[in-house]
Design a protein around this nucleic acid. Structure first.
Lengths: 348, 348
DNA sequence: GTTAATAATTGGAACGTTCCAACTTTGTCA
DNA sequence: TGACAAAGTTGGAACGTTCCAATTATTAAC
C-alpha cells in the first residue's frame, strides 16, 4: 500500500536521475542515453508507475488530450453499436481512447454529454445528433476549435465535417430492383417524417417510382417509429388499404424485420408472397430467415472512416470542414423474392 | 478567437473577485454570497468558460476523477450494448461520465484498454472480461485500490465485486418447463465449453434433466460459437443424430435465433414442431416470429445494478468486494409451444 | 464602544507533468 | 592547448485548479 501515487519524481529518485530525464524517457525522446532509458524503464515497472495524463495535458496546452468523444442517439440500435466498434478500432490504434455516450434522442442529454466531454478535454467529437439538433447547438464547439464529425445525420448550416450514407441512391436502387422483378405497388414503410434521413430516403424512392413509370403516390408512404415494433404497426396500416402493396422498401432493417413479422402473422410469406427490402445491413440481416435484401451501409466502415476524418482534422490543427458521402449498395438476398424461382407477383 | 482557453483567473478578473471565490462558486459552496455567485456565473457564461477537470482532479489527489470505465468483450452483441446503456443512465445521473471500450475477446486489447483507463484516472471499472482473463490480470487494479465490478463473467480468486446472472436457475427452469410440456429429448445447444458461464448454464440443464427423471445424456449437449451462425450450425449436428431432440435449451438468444433459422430451413416450424428456449431476453426476442421463450436477464437492469455497486464502492472509499447474483425468470412466449394449443410432441 | 461570533473573501502553496534554457561531460579539430 | 560541437542531463517555471490558513467585513451581544 503506497501512500500516494508514484510520480516521475519517485522514479527519478530511485533511478538516480532528474525528473526531466524521466519525462524524456516517457516521451521516447532520442535525446536520452540508451542505458539510462533502460534503467528508468526498469524502475518504472518495479514501482508500478502509472502515467498521469491529466497532469501531462495540463502542461501542454497546445497539444490536447488523447481522448475522442463519440455521441450516439440510440446505442441499443445495433447499427450504432457497430459504428462505435468501428470508431474504436481506429482511434485505439492511434493511441486515443474513446468516450462513448448515449443520448437516447434527448437534446438535453446531448448538451450535458457534450459539455462533460469538453470538460474532460476531448480532442474531437464524433456525433450522431439527436433528433432536432440545430446548427446553433454545435456553435460552441466550432468556436472552441474542437474538430467535429457528424455521422448518419447531417445538420445544415453547421460548419463541421459530416459523413452520411448515400440515402437517395440506396432507396433508388431498391425500387429499381423491385420494379425489375415486376412489382408496381411498392410501399415506402417506416421512419419519422421530420428527419433529414427520412427525406433523403423517401426522395430516392420517389424519384425511382417516377422514373420507372409507375409514378409516385403519397398513399404508399406509411411512416412509423424506426423500430421493429414500428414496422409491425406500419405494415398493418399498409395492408388495410383498398389495394395493398406487393412490396415494401423499408426505412431501415429494424422496420423491415417488423414488416416480416407482421406479414407472417397474416400468413403471408416474406420473400415469396411479398417483397421486403431493408436499409443498413445489420449483422442479423444475412442470418435471419428469409435473409433480408437490404442496402448495405457497413456501420463499422462508417465508424472507421469517420474516425479517420476526425484524426486527420485533429492532426491538421485547423479544422477544415469536409463533407463525405458513404456509398451504399444493394445486397440481394431472399426477402425480395429474387433468389426464389419466381418473383413475388401472386398476392394474398 | 480567444488566444488561450479562459480560466478561473480570467473569470475572477472580469468579475472583480479572487480565483478562490470563483472556485467556490464552481463547487456550489454555501460559503459564497448569493449576489457574488450570480455575478460570477454570469461572467462565466459570457466568456464561455469551460471547466478543466484535468487540472481539478490533479489537485484533489484524494477524490478521484468523475470517470468510470466500462470494458466489454463484444459490443456488437446487443446484450452488451444494452448493458452499457444501463450503466450510462445511472453513472450519468451521478455526475460521472463513462469511458467505453470493446476488447473483442482479446486479452491484449483488454490490457491496453485498462492501462489507458488508469492513465486517465478512472474512479472505477465495470468489466465483462475477455475469455481467458485470470485473477492476476486484475491484480494491479486491486493493488491500486481501484474499485472493480465484474459483470456477466466472474473470475475466481480475483478479490473484486461481481454481478452475474443466476445461470444455473435459468436453464433449470427452462428444462422443467419443457419437461412439463411433455418433452424428454431436450438438447443443450450452443456456447463455448471453456467458459464459466457455459458450465453454469449446462449445470442447471444437467441437474434439471436428472431431477425430471429423463436423465442427463452427454450426446444431447451440442456446443458452438455463441452466435446466430453458431446456432444454425449446432442445430444441424443435433438433427443429424439417430434420435434427434424435440426441444432445445439454447446458450443464449443469438443461438436460439440461429436454431429457429435452421429449423425453418428444414421445414420444421419452431414453436409448433419443435420447442426452443433462449437465454438473455434481448429486445428482439419478443417481437420476432415466433416470439422467443427465453430466460430474462434484463441487460439494462444488470448494467444499472452494476453501476450502483460500483458507485457505492467509490463512495465508500474502501473497496469492499461484494458478490451478487442477478435473479432470472422464464418468459414463456411462443417458441416453446406452450402458447399454442398443443405442445410440440409430433416430430418430423 | 468593545468584544465575539459569523459570513465572506483571499493569496499562496500544492498537485504531476512538460518545456525551456542552462549546464556538464566528452570528443574533435586546428 | 584552446575552441567548439555534440550528446546527455538538469533545475526551475508553468499549466488550471483546489485546499488551507489568514484576512476583512458584517452582525450580534453585552
Amino acid at each position: 500500500m503506497g501512500k500516494g501515487r508514484v510520480t516521475v519524481i519517485d522514479i527519478a529518485k530511485a533511478a538516480g536521475v532528474s525528473k526531466s530525464t524521466v519525462s524524456l524517457v516517457l516521451q521516447a525522446s532520442p535525446l536520452v542515453n540508451e542505458s539510462t532509458r533502460t534503467k528508468v524503464n526498469a524502475v518504472m515497472r518495479e514501482l508500478g508507475y502509472v502515467y498521469n495524463r491529466g497532469a501531462a495535458n495540463l502542461r501542454q496546452a497546445n497539444a490536447r488530450s488523447k481522448i475522442i468523444g463519440i455521441v450516439v442517439n440510440d446505442l441499443t440500435n445495433s447499427f450504432f453499436a457497430e459504428l462505435a466498434v468501428g470508431v474504436d478500432t481506429v482511434v485505439q490504434s492511434a493511441g486515443f481512447v474513446q468516450f462513448l455516450s448515449n443520448t437516447s434522442e434527448s437534446i438535453d442529454r446531448q448538451r450535458e454529454v457534450i459539455a462533460s466531454m469538453r470538460e474532460h478535454g476531448v480532442s474531437g467529437l464524433i456525433i450522431s445528433p439527436a433528433r432536432g439538433t440545430e446548427a446553433v447547438d454545435l456553435k460552441p464547439l466550432v468556436m472552441a476549435g474542437i474538430p467535429v464529425v457528424l455521422v448518419v445525420r447531417n445538420i445544415p448550416g453547421a460548419k463541421v465535417s459530416s459523413l452520411v450514407s448515400d440515402n437517395h441512391a440506396g432507396t433508388f436502387a431498391a425500387v429499381e430492383h423491385l420494379a425489375a422483378l415486376g412489382h408496381s405497388r411498392i410501399a415506402f414503410v417506416g421512419g419519422f417524417p421530420d428527419t433529414a434521413v427520412f427525406d433523403e430516403r423517401l426522395g430516392g424512392y420517389r424519384d425511382a417510382m417516377s422514373k420507372t413509370g409507375t409514378g409516385f403516390q403519397e398513399e404508399l408512404v406509411v411512416s412509423s417509429a424506426p423500430s421493429r415494433a414500428g414496422g409491425v404497426d406500419a405494415l398493418a396500416r399498409a395492408m388495410a388499404m383498398p389495394e395493398p402493396p406487393t412490396a415494401a422498401v423499408c426505412f431501415n432493417d429494424a422496420v423491415a424485420f417488423g414488416v416480416c413479422d407482421g406479414l407472417r402473422a397474416r400468413r403471408i410469406e416474406p420473400g415469396k408472397d411479398f417483397a421486403v427490402v431493408g436499409f443498413d445491413d445489420v449483422i442479423e440481416a444475412k442470418t435471419t430467415v428469409p435473409a433480408l435484401t437490404t442496402i448495405s451501409v457497413d456501420p463499422q466502415g462508417i465508424g472507421q472512416r469517420a474516425a479517420q476524418m476526425l484524426l486527420k482534422q485533429i492532426n491538421a490543427g485547423k479544422p477544415e470542414a469536409e463533407s463525405a458521402v458513404s456509398s451504399v449498395r444493394l445486397i440481394v438476398r431472399e426477402s425480395c423474392g429474387a433468389a426464389m424461382n419466381k418473383p413475388g407477383r401472386k398476392m394474398a
